[in-house]
Computed example of a mutant assay.
Amino acid sequence: MPNFVRCYTGDDGKSHLEDLNPPFESFVDTEGAYGEGTPMLGANGVNIRIAQPGYLLEWHCAPRRQYTITLSGVAEVEVSDGTKRQVGAGDVLLAEDLTGAGHITRVISDEPRYYMVVALAD
């Protein structure tokens, strides 16, 4: 099962990581697809990115509320208290730390990290 992680700014102005439990519920879509899914969210855009092994993005805040979905490779996200989480293939990170100290992102795999960014609508 993939991991769902949220990176957010706390009342202390620092970024924190927490496990996220998406609100899955039963659905049937108009074409007949069915199962469990989350409510549909609005998005402003989607792109696919590649980050090479050794990629390092020092302290930064998320540029917008966005999901990053790792397709392959492994990244590590570090927040100011030293907590680190790895995200690999299938893992979903909800980045909501738009202010404060931010986080570090680094590719720690020997292969490129392919990932999709879904910019959420306001």
Rank of each mutant, 00 (worst) to 15 (best):
M1N: 10
P2M: 05
P2L: 05
N3Y: 08
F4S: 07
V5Q: 10
R6Q: 10
C7V: 14
C7D: 09
Y8L: 00
Y8Q: 03
G10T: 00
D12H: 02
G13C: 01
H16S: 00
L17Y: 02
E18I: 06
E18K: 13
L20I: 04
P22E: 03
P23Q: 07
F24I: 04
F27P: 01
V28F: 03
T30V: 15
T30H: 12
E31T: 12
A33P: 02
A33E: 11
G35K: 03
T38D: 03
T38M: 13
T38I: 15
L41C: 05
N44E: 13
G45P: 07
V46S: 08
V46D: 04
V46G: 01
V46M: 14
R49Y: 10
I50K: 15
A51S: 15
P53I: 01
P53Q: 08
Y55G: 11
L56A: 06
L56F: 14
L56T: 10
H60W: 01
C61L: 02
A62V: 04
A62G: 10
P63G: 02
R64H: 13
R65E: 10
Y67A: 02
Y67K: 09
I69V: 15
T70R: 01
L71Y: 05
S72I: 01
G73D: 00
V74E: 11
E78S: 12
E78T: 15
G82V: 00
G82E: 00
R85I: 07
R85H: 07
V87P: 04
V87G: 11
G90W: 07
D91E: 02
L93D: 06
D97L: 02
D97G: 05
D97A: 10
T99V: 12
A101Q: 12
H103A: 05
H103P: 06
T105P: 02
R106Y: 07
R106W: 08
R106N: 05
V107C: 12
S109G: 13
D110K: 13
E111G: 08
R113M: 15
V118R: 01
A119M: 12
L120H: 01
A121E: 15
A121F: 06
D122S: 08
